[in-house]
Design a protein around this nucleic acid. Sequence first.
DNA 1: GTGGTCTAGACCACA
DNA 2: GTGGTCTAGACCACG
Lengths: 140, 140, 140, 140
Amino acid sequence: MLAITDITKKIMIININFSAETPIYVQLRNQIIEGIAIGELKRGESLPSIRQLAVDIGVNMHTVNKTYKQLKTDGYIVIHKRRGVLINPNKIKWNGKYVEKLEEKIRPIIAESICQGLKEKDFFKHCLNIYKNLNPGVQK
Amino acid sequence: MLAITDITKKIMIININFSAETPIYVQLRNQIIEGIAIGELKRGESLPSIRQLAVDIGVNMHTVNKTYKQLKTDGYIVIHKRRGVLINPNKIKWNGKYVEKLEEKIRPIIAESICQGLKEKDFFKHCLNIYKNLNPGVQK
Amino acid sequence: MLAITDITKKIMIININFSAETPIYVQLRNQIIEGIAIGELKRGESLPSIRQLAVDIGVNMHTVNKTYKQLKTDGYIVIHKRRGVLINPNKIKWNGKYVEKLEEKIRPIIAESICQGLKEKDFFKHCLNIYKNLNPGVQK
Amino acid sequence: MLAITDITKKIMIININFSAETPIYVQLRNQIIEGIAIGELKRGESLPSIRQLAVDIGVNMHTVNKTYKQLKTDGYIVIHKRRGVLINPNKIKWNGKYVEKLEEKIRPIIAESICQGLKEKDFFKHCLNIYKNLNPGVQK
DNA sequence: GTGGTCTAGACCACA
DNA sequence: GTGGTCTAGACCACG
C-alpha cells in the first residue's frame, strides 16, 4: 500500500490492515505520528490532500478526513487554505492532560505484562528497543 | 462503585466510567488484570459470579459475561464448576505472541510521547513510576 | 432454510434444526466449516453480513454474530473492513493443540462404537464414507 | 480423583475436569463407557452406588444419577434393586439409530480436520491409534 | 443459583 | 449499512 505524501518530495509507506480490530483512521493516525517521531515527516512538510491520500491507500475519504481532523486538534498538523495540509511547523505546545492520558494508556499494558510473567527488566528492555528504533540518536 | 469479590474475605473496588469511550467490558477487564498484577487478587482466589458482579457494579449481566469470557480465553481466570470463578491458580503459560502484541501497543504510545516533546528520560520515569506503583517490591 | 451467501454468485443451503440439542450457533458453525471442507466455500470468498444471514436463516443477529466471532478466532474467516466477511484467504496455520482436541473428541466416539458392537472394519468404513463424501478426490 | 468401583474387586480411576466445558455427567459417562470398551469393566460387573461414586469423585449426587440414568437408557448398565448397579450382562441390542448418530458426530470432526489441513492418511492414522489404544487385540 | 444460549431492540463508531 | 457494544428479559442445562 503506497501513499505519496508529496510527489515532488517524498514517499512514505502507509500500511493499513483491513482485518485488524484497530480502526483504519487510528492506524493511519498512528503511522503519521510515527512518521513525525522518526523524523520521516519534518515540521512544515506537506501531506497529501484528503482525496489524494484516500485514493492512494484505498480507503474512504471520510476516514482520512477523520484522521486529519484528529491530528489537527491534537496539534500534529495544520491545515492551510492555500498551502494544504502541513506538519505543524511549531513545536506542539505542552498539554497538561497528555501525561494523564499516557498513564491511562500505559497502566493496563504494564499490568498485563506483569501478569504474563514478563520481568520488569525485560519489559523495559523491549520498551527501550522500540524507543531507540523510533528515535535513534538525539532528541529531535 | 463497589464490588465485593468475596463477602467473607475481600473487597475490591471497581471503577466504571460509563461515559468513557473505553467499553465497559474492557474497563472491567483492565481493572481485574490490574488487581491480579498488584496482587490484590491472588491465584486461586474466587471472583463473584457474573450475575453478582453485574449487580454490584450496576451493569448488565452480558457485559460482565463478556469480560469473564475474554479473561478466560486469555488464561487469567478459570471457571470451576464447583468453586465458581477463580483467578487461574496456575501461571499463565507464556505465549510467544504476547511480545508482538506488546510492541504493537507500545509503539504508537512512544511515538506520541516523542512528538509531544517528552524526553526519553521522562518517559521512562513515568513508566517506572507506574510499574512500581503496580508492582512494589519483588516479582511475585 | 435458505441462505444466500452472495446474491450474484452463490447459494449455499443452511439447515438449522431449532429443536435439536445442539445450539444454533454451533450448527451454523459446523455447516460453514463443512462448506469450506467440501470446497463449496472457497478461500477469499465472501459470506453474507451478520444481519443478512440472520434474516436468511431466521435467527437473531447475535446468534450469527457468535458463530462468526468463533469462526474468526479459529481462523476460518476474516472480517475485512472493506470487503466484508471472507473465508480466510490464507491456509489456517497449524495449531499443535488441534491434534489433542481431535483425540479428546474422537476417543469417546470410538469407545461408544466398540461398546455398540460395531466392528473396527465397519467403523472405519463409515468414517471413510463420510470422509469421501466431504472430500471427494484430492486434497484441496 | 479416585473412585472405588467395588471395594472387594476393583479400582477404576475417574478423572473429572471441573473447568472443562464438557459437563461433568458427560465426562463421567464417557469414562465409564471407555472402561467398558477397554474391558476394564466387564459385563455383569458391579458399579458403585450413586451416593458412593458421588462422594468418591467429589460431585453432586444428582450428577452421578444423571449419568447412570443415561447409561441405563442406552443399555450400558442395568439397575437391580438387590444387586445394585451392574454393567449390562447382555450384549447391547443394536439400535438402528446409532449409526445415524455416529455420522452426525463424526461429520463435523472430519470437516474440521480437512480445514485444518490434516491429510486423510494422518487423520485415519490418529483414529487407528486411538482405536488400538482402546481395543488392543481381538474384538471383545 | 450458575453459566450458556437465544431473542429483541437500541445506540454508536466506522467506512 | 456494517460490526461492536449494551441492555433487558427469558429459558435451559448443569450442579
